[in-house]
């Protein structure tokens, strides 16, 4: 699994239970990519990461976390 974690699923529910389809449409990607992101199976480009953060009105680090190896 990726060492880049994210809170997309949590943020979706906090924003009126936004659907994956709705988020995908807002940020300009497919629903399959949102699913892959939530499952930690895909690391987005910086651009897509910013678009996701902005769609929730939060900073990048409130969405994505880098889990450094100890």
């Amino acid at each position: 699994m990726s060492r880049i974690g994210n809170r997309i699923r949590r943020l979706r529910f906090d924003h009126g239970e936004m659907t994956q389809e709705e988020l995908a449409s807002r940020v300009g990607c497919t629903r399959q990519t949102i699913i892959a992101l939530e499952q930690g199976k895909y690391v987005p480009s910086i651009e897509l990461a910013f678009r996701i953060a902005r769609s929730f009105g939060v900073t990048l680090e409130e969405v994505f976390q880098y889990e450094a190896e100890s």
Partner: peptide, 9 residues
């Protein structure tokens, strides 16, 4: 088509 394909694809 932007809805058909994105950066991952």
């Amino acid at each position: 088509k932007p809805t058909q394909i994105d950066e991952r694809d």
